[in-house]
Write a protein that binds this DNA or RNA. Structure first.
Length: 201
DNA sequence: CTAGTGATCCGCT
DNA sequence: GCGGATCACTAGA
């Protein structure tokens, strides 16, 4: 076998969002064949003042309270789309924000969508990820184990991913909770982990 | 590299 | 009205 075949991701999305957020680092996310390795995530939970689900279900956050393993897509600052994976059991209101991806597949489509050549900045930030992968409101509530979504484990023999954790970015409440996770040393992060991040694996 | 700022829309006070 | 789970751009260290 000249080529290791892709391994579908086995991940129980009913786990706590901070567990899922950490486990997703190194996982490949493709939408219609476009995407790459997830290198940065953030966890949000129901009893978390920084979470959209904090105040209970509304029209906007309804997908967060839906079944786990689906997408929650929201509009940020009136301009960008952001992609989350819903966690915990239905009705709980937890999710993981996909903050950055190392581009590996469909580079030209991503460059066209972003109007940008530079690889490092194609998917370095939640708004950039959504734009590069073509995510918009029509993906809200979509199952992650069905087309056009594909989630893949790191291939066999791939070097173990070293994950670090730190405070989440761009929030004012619960800013000290270290629920931002990233691949140590990746140049595709939205921001470096400055306060010596805690090594995870 | 960091810090500051405008853009632009929707949900909530 | 106000303020965001942001980004692109500018200026300065």
């Amino acid at each position: 076998m000249p080529h290791p075949s892709p391994r579908p991701l086995k991940l129980d999305f009913s786990a706590p969002s901070e567990v899922i957020a950490e486990a997703l680092i190194g996982v490949t996310l493709l939408i219609d064949g476009v995407g790459g390795r997830i290198v940065e995530t953030e966890a949000y939970d129901r009893d978390d003042p920084a979470s959209h689900s904090f105040g209970g279900p509304t029209l906007r956050n309804a997908a967060m309270f839906g079944p786990p393993g689906r997408a929650y897509v929201y509009r940020s600052y009136g301009i960008h789309w952001c992609l989350n994976f819903v966690c915990r059991e239905e009705g709980h209101g937890a999710g993981v924000l996909i903050r950055a991806i190392e581009p590996t597949a469909g580079l030209e489509r991503m460059r066209r969508r972003r109007g940008l050549e530079e690889l490092r900045l194609l998917c370095a930030g939640p708004g950039r990820v959504a734009q590069a992968l073509g995510v918009d409101a029509s993906f809200n509530g979509h199952a992650l184990d069905a087309p056009p979504f594909v989630l893949l484990e790191a291939p066999d023999g791939h070097p173990a991913v070293v994950v670090e954790a730190g405070p989440r970015i761009g929030i004012s409440k619960a800013a000290d909770v270290p629920w931002r996770f990233g691949e140590k040393g990746s140049r595709f992060l939205s921001k470096p982990f400055r306060t010596a991040g805690v090594p995870r694996r």
